[in-house]
């Protein structure tokens, strides 16, 4: 049984792109399209989740993801609680399930979970009562499905809904990136024409070609040729100390997205980045701020996409007999 879908194929929890059918991904984007209009209203919210309580449970720091989840919940009129667990209970020795039991005792309807360990959101989803929905806001190196869906939404806005004619390149630290993994699953599910990953050998899982069905390149000069979408990944600086990379300067020299490298892509290619960007490491400032960059649009779209996922997975009290 798919933990993420109910018996009618509707979203139940949102944990991972893998395992979700194409029509659910398309439905998320269609719903997000409608929610993006809410921002243009004089009153920038809708009463859909009035009376529901959403708890952002973040065991790992994040500003952008937490604030866009918070804003999305508020635009749906839900009550929102933000919990930064690393600074509270966990440091006092409370177990994950004890923390959850306490949150459930507050009559929460939805948990938005971020954790440094892969599989945490799914673990929680298996232990919550039937009326509670769980959304994965990033778990370890495993998945970051709302980021992937806001990226798909951004691509669709610029390139249309036929992903079959698109070449998409993901550049950077594939090995440690839950974003890249979720993006690749989403692009494959949406039947993208060609998905390329461009990465140093030290930052690429050995079986990525077989496991994820992507084309592998080790030089941006080869991989960026004629692509319609370039997704740059953030280089986490802590990787530098693990002997995987020589230096920031050298990374930029060989892998950084410069105007010259961007010119190899299709003339109307868009440049994306999940943020926060390291200027002068994985991307040149001129490119990040240039006409082809849609990096700030991604942030805006993140709110509408998260509203869609929350509204679609929120349990109604009429289903499954849940109280």
């Amino acid at each position: 049984m798919n933990l993420q879908l109910d018996d009618q194929g509707r979203l139940r929890h949102f944990l991972d792109i893998a395992g979700l059918p194409r029509d659910v991904l398309i439905n998320i984007m269609d719903t997000a399209e409608k929610f993006s209009g809410v921002t243009e209203q004089a009153v920038k919210k809708v009463p859909l989740l009035r009376g529901k309580t959403i708890v952002n449970v973040f065991f790992e720091n994040s500003t952008r993801t937490r604030t866009t989840f918070e804003l999305a919940a508020k635009r749906l009129s839900a009550d929102v609680l933000n919990l930064n667990i690393s600074t509270s209970s966990a440091s006092k020795g409370e177990t994950l399930l004890d923390t959850l039991a306490n949150l459930q005792a507050m009559h929460s309807d939805m948990f938005v979970v971020r954790h440094e360990d892969s599989g945490t959101a799914e673990f929680i989803a298996r232990h919550v009562p039937p009326h509670v929905a769980v959304i994965n806001a990033g778990d370890g190196r495993h998945a970051h499905p709302t980021q992937a869906m806001l990226d798909m939404f951004t691509i669709r806005r610029h390139k249309g809904s036929d992903f079959g004619r698109l070449r998409v390149a993901i550049v950077g630290d594939i090995m440690h990136s839950r974003v890249a993994r979720s993006q690749i699953h989403a692009l494959n599910t949406l039947l993208t024409g060609e998905v390329r990953v461009i990465a140093p050998r030290t930052l690429l899982p050995g079986n990525v070609r077989e496991a994820l069905g992507v084309h592998v390149f080790h030089r941006p000069e080869e991989g960026l040729r004629d692509v319609d979408v370039i997704i740059m990944l953030r280089l986490q600086k802590e990787r530098m100390s693990g002997a995987l990379l020589p230096s920031e300067h050298e990374y930029f020299q060989y892998w950084g997205l410069t105007q010259e490298r961007l010119a190899l892509a299709a003339p109307d290619a868009i440049v994306m980045h999940p943020g926060p960007i390291n200027r002068g490491v994985e991307i040149d400032s001129v490119v990040a701020d240039g006409d082809q960059s849609v990096i700030l649009e991604q942030v805006t779209h993140g709110i509408a996409v998260r509203m869609a996922v929350m509204a679609m997975s929120m349990r109604s009290s009429g289903t499954e007999g849940a109280a």
Binding site: K34, L48, G318
Partner: peptide, 12 residues
């Protein structure tokens, strides 16, 4: 759809 009064019964 986002203003209906039966969301809690019928879902979205």
């Amino acid at each position: 759809s986002f203003y209906r009064d039966d969301f809690t019964r019928a879902g979205m």
